[in-house]
Amino acid sequence: MNLSSTKKWEYATVPLIVHATKQILDQWGEDGWELVQVLTGPDGNGLVAYLKREKA
């Protein structure tokens, strides 16, 4: 496998506000981020979005 052709990714975790979830995800999507998963936050409250995008 040629390492120079291997994709490299960066990741972000974003707390989601329930009444603004779509707007938050749309904004990150406009910046090139892809939603990977949404999970309950570490404190057991709220939601956290996990996103990734290819490094430039």
Score class of each variant (00 low, 15 high):
Ala12Thr: 04
Lys7Glu: 13
Gln27Asp: 15
Met1Gln: 07
Tyr11Ile: 03
Trp28Phe: 14
Gln27Thr: 14
Gly29Ser: 07
Asn45Pro: 03
Val36Asn: 06
Lys8Tyr: 01
Leu51Asn: 01
Trp33Glu: 06
Lys52Leu: 04
Gly32Pro: 04
Lys22Glu: 15
Pro15Thr: 02
Thr13Tyr: 08
Val38Glu: 08
Val48Ser: 03
Lys52Gln: 11
Leu16Lys: 07
Ser5Gly: 09
Leu35Ser: 02
Ala56Pro: 14
Gln23Asp: 15
Trp9Cys: 03
Asn2Cys: 07
Glu30Asp: 15
Ser4Thr: 11
Val48Trp: 04
Asn2Ala: 09
Gly41Thr: 00
Ala49Leu: 04
Leu3Gln: 11
Val18Leu: 11
His19Phe: 14
Thr6Ala: 15
Asp31Met: 11
Pro15Tyr: 06
Asn2Thr: 07
Gly29Glu: 04
Thr6Gly: 06
Val38Lys: 03
Ala49Gln: 01
Val18His: 13
Thr6Val: 13
Val36Phe: 03
Asp31Val: 01
Ile17Ser: 08
Pro15Ser: 12
Pro42Trp: 02
Trp33Asn: 02
Thr6Ser: 13
Ala12Gln: 00
His19Gln: 14
Leu47Val: 00
Gln27Tyr: 08
Glu10Met: 03
Trp9Glu: 10
Met1Arg: 10
Leu3Met: 11
Thr40Ser: 05
Ala12Pro: 03
Gly44Thr: 04
Lys8Cys: 09
Val14Ser: 10
Asn45Asp: 12
Lys52Arg: 14
Thr6Lys: 13
Val14Gln: 10
Thr13Met: 01
Pro15Cys: 02
Ala56Cys: 06
Ile24Cys: 10
Ala56Val: 10
Gly44Pro: 05
Gly29Trp: 01
Thr13Phe: 03
Gln37Cys: 04
Glu30Pro: 05
Asp43Gln: 12
Lys52Ser: 02
Val14Gly: 05
Val48Pro: 01
Ala49Pro: 09
Glu34Trp: 02
Leu25Gly: 00
Lys8Gln: 12
Leu51Tyr: 05
Gln37Ile: 12
Tyr50Asp: 09
Ser5Val: 12
Thr21Gly: 08
Lys52Trp: 04
Lys7Gln: 14
Leu25Arg: 01
Leu25Thr: 01
Glu54Tyr: 01
Met1Lys: 11
Lys7Phe: 07
Trp33Phe: 06
Trp9Gln: 02
Lys52Pro: 07
Lys55Val: 09
Leu47Lys: 13
Gly32Phe: 05
Glu54Ser: 07
Thr21Pro: 10
Leu51Phe: 03
Gly29Asn: 07
Tyr50Val: 10
Pro15Asp: 15
Arg53His: 10
Glu30Val: 10
Trp9Ser: 01
Lys7Asn: 14
Lys52Asp: 04
Thr13Arg: 08
Gly46Lys: 06
Leu47Gln: 12
Thr6Leu: 15
Ala49Lys: 05
Glu54Thr: 01
Trp28Tyr: 15
Tyr11Ala: 03
Lys22Trp: 13
Val18Asn: 14
Leu35Phe: 06
Val36Met: 15
Gly41Cys: 02
Asn2Trp: 02
Leu51Trp: 07
Ser4Gln: 13
Arg53Tyr: 10
Lys22Cys: 12
Thr6Gln: 15
Val38Phe: 04
Ala20Ile: 02
Val36Ala: 09
Gln27Cys: 04
His19Val: 13
Ala12Trp: 00
Thr40Pro: 12
Glu10Phe: 06
Asp26Thr: 15
Ala12Arg: 03
